[in-house]
Design a protein around this nucleic acid. Sequence first.
DNA 1: GACAAGATACCGACCGGTTGGTATGTTATT
DNA 2: AATAACATACCAACCGGTCGGTATCTTGTC
Lengths: 209, 209
Amino acid sequence: MPSEMSEAPARKDARARLLDAAVMAIRTRGYSATTVDMLCAAAGVTKGAFFHHFRSKDDLGVAVADHWSEMTGAIFAGAPYHDAPDPLARILGYVAFRKALLDGGIADFTCLVGTMVQETYETSPAIRDACERSIGGHAATLEADIAAAMAERGMAPGWTARSLALHTQAVIQGAFVLAKAGGGAEVAAESLDHLARYLELLFTPPKGD
Amino acid sequence: MPSEMSEAPARKDARARLLDAAVMAIRTRGYSATTVDMLCAAAGVTKGAFFHHFRSKDDLGVAVADHWSEMTGAIFAGAPYHDAPDPLARILGYVAFRKALLDGGIADFTCLVGTMVQETYETSPAIRDACERSIGGHAATLEADIAAAMAERGMAPGWTARSLALHTQAVIQGAFVLAKAGGGAEVAAESLDHLARYLELLFTPPKGD
DNA sequence: GACAAGATACCGACCGGTTGGTATGTTATT
DNA sequence: AATAACATACCAACCGGTCGGTATCTTGTC
């Protein structure tokens, strides 16, 4: 089997360059408006190379969603908020980390799979499933901390750790939509502030202990 | 000048049929993947009629966003939650109303302008502005109730009525993204439950009065 | 109220460019 | 010499948009 970490081939291979180009192009223009030709131009390869590595445009869509899962998985796995001893601090640290990520242009901080699934959920089940894996898998990394914070307080609320983890993702995805409509990261940041406030209120007993 | 409410012309005119077709097509497939030809086929008109009423596809995009604003504006203006005497009850009534709207297929309850702005925010300023007007205008209908609930309690928090109104829209938009990825309305409904819980906690003093 | 004149609504064939995709090379690595 | 990794050339279908034309409705004038 081909080793992924063989000697550096001087330049990244066409497949990796196409995936990187696809991430930015789709975040900027969406999936349907991103053409194979512009991907090849951005990656500096020809169409022959594209269809050597991907059977179809939809196949690229699935691959880029998986690529996105790996990219973001590495970023969040290496983030410092995991070091906090208190589960609630880790959860709030996650939200603060996401807020810190709201930097640069809109295409630089918005979510590839969130954008892609809006266009393809009905027409391409394979892409939709890849997007669901990406979002669901990321939400799962929060679930343990949420469950720990609940157990620490002996909470038995009418909601589950999973539903709260998914809710955080809903806020984040929605914040991106508003940022695109309103033209800036500020609206998104304020929404993340509300999310952090909700989490604090949820895990703070109504009467001082 | 031609009266808009003249004798019913037996069938809706082509422009209205095209706008209705565009609402469903774009909610299902997105803006870019929706072609002028399929719109004409769905509306039962020809391309000549399309370009008689709209200068371009983007012009249709702007018109359908405005059409959406009018449609949803009428629905929410006529909804019963406005009758509650308490401002907080009206706010929670709004969230409950939105939850009740989560019915039917995904394309039947998701947001046209939220979908459209994700694809066009960078490439079509006119469409993006129309989507911003739609979302911002809808959020503004919540702002007065939020401000009233704040004033009623003498609150002076670190957030504004507008930011909370926009946050509700972020949750709703994000819930739609998760519904498309996860394939159902249940995830969206649970996120709206979290939103309602946040609003209750926000407007409930931490100590019993 | 008859009638010319113009505006409006709509049709469907057509156009140049673009689309995703293919067939067939050529080159580099093992 | 196999095989993977590309490049070149090409295609049929489709894309948004244009065009000349027609039917209908409105309006002003006598």
